[in-house]
Structures are given as C-alpha cells and as structure tokens.
Amino acid sequence: MLSTTTPRPEREQRFVEILQRLVDKSVDEYYNPYREFDWPETLPSEMMWMSDDLTSTYGTEIVNELTEAQRQQLSRWESINFYSLNVEGIRELLVEVVRRIHTRGFEIPSDFFHHFVGEENEHMWFFAEFCLRYGGKIYSGPKLNSIAHEDPRVENLLVFCRVLLFEEIVDHYNMRMAGDTSLHETIRQVNRVHHEDESRHIAFGRELVSLLHADLVGDLTPGQREEIEQYLKRYIAFSLRAFYNPQIYRDAGIPDPLGFRERLLAEPSRRDAERRAVRKPLAFMCKTGIFADDVLPGI
C-alpha cells in the first residue's frame, strides 16, 4: 500500500496495474454458477448449518440452556440469516456501483465494475437460491433510506468503505465455513465459491478506498474526518448486530426471543467473537488513516 503522500500519478498507475490483474483473473476464473452447484432436495436437520464458533450463542453461558437439537435448529436459521444478509447487502452495493459505472471520476474502475456487477448478480442468485430451497424464505428488515452525504466525494468514500467492510465481514464467515469439515458439502461449497470471487473484490475495494481517501484527506477538516470515522464505526457495529436478527430466535422456537437476544448481546464474550470478525478490516481502516483507533461504539 502506498501512503497518502505518494504523488497522484504514481498511485493511479498502481491502481491501473492492479485492476488489470484482477480483471484478468476474473476472466480466467469465470464459471457458470447456474451449473456449479448440485442442490440436494433437502439438507439434514440433525447437524449444524453454521460453524459452532460463528453462531451468535458461541462462548456464552446461555448456549447451555439449549438442547443439541435446539442448537442445530438455531444454527439452521443463523445460516439462512447469513445468506439473507448477503442478498440484502448485494442489492445495496449493486445499486451503488451501477449508479457510478462509466460516470465521471470512475473511468478507471469501470471495466472492473462490469465483472463486479456480473459476479455479485450471481452471488445474489445462489444465496437467494439457498435461502428459498432450505429455509423457504429470505429474511429482510425495514428499509429506511440512508441519506447521501452532501459532498459527493465524501459519499463515494463512504459507499466504497461500506461495500468493503461488508465484504470483509462476510469473508470471515465464508472462509471459516468453507474449511469446516463438519458442515454439509453444499454449505461449504456456497461459502467456498463466494470466498474465491470475494478475494478479488476485497483486493479491489482496498485499492479504491485507499485512492478515494488519499484524494480527499487533504481537504477534510478534523471535524469532517471524525464524522466519517464515527459513521463507519457505527456501520460496523450495525453489521455485527445483523447476525443477531430477532427473527432467527423466534424461528428456532426459543421462548422470549427478544429477551434471549438481549442477554446474548450483554455477554462480554460476544465482544471477542465480534472483534475476530472485524479484525482485518479494522486494521486496514487504521492503517489507511480513515480510523484513528480501533475502538468500536455501541449501537
């Protein structure tokens, strides 16, 4: 990574070269997602659908209140919730990228955007397919429009930071589940296939975010810089909370689902699991100088 003091042409040259490499890889590794998966009729209910250490009850005392069957049942809805978060998140990032492709200021990444949009469309398809086949639904939440920042350069930075943070958090789950031999092969495969494409998207996102930030940072007041950091940290906290969707506890048949969720959130051990999920993106945000420290706020 280059520093913010590196001259613009040099940074741009590096960006062009990296993008070319990522586009070439995307073309080489192109696959047909509609043929890639063999979807079994059903997945067995007497097993975990999410790696134990990724579930929202992991590391708590509360998990001992559940029978093994209840834990498996909950892991099934946690798994469906995870792919649903992907469906929802991809919808948002596609809207943002499509809005910018081949517009002024995005001349260089537009070629990569074509691959990105195509791949995300396919990801959304297989995640939705999984949810509908094995959960009978895609979880969704209330849609409250986030209002764009009045400065388009700041808005661009915020949008691509959100995309990157989302993809990095998802990737933490994908990598773990792809390698977890205790999970069903279909679950491992969905996570593995996604991780392979996302490694390019994340590499791209880090470069783009670094570049957008370097172009902007000199013009920011300390107050504006602070505002960006606080907003993105709240976005991280919000993304982590999404794994505690109240609906999963209800669907798993847990009595007083909201009270159960509240108790989980209050467990200090959950902070450790959450930090593991965001360790890499937090380190990146600190290294680029977008974050001054790695302290996360509550919601």
Partner: peptide, 11 residues
C-alpha cells in the same frame, strides 16, 4: 434515528 439505529430502536 437513522438506518443504522432503526432495527435496534424497533426492538
């Protein structure tokens, strides 16, 4: 209450 706080607010 913005989009990031709304779910928690509803809960």
């Amino acid at each position: 209450i913005d989009s990031l706080a709304f779910v928690e607010f509803m809960v």
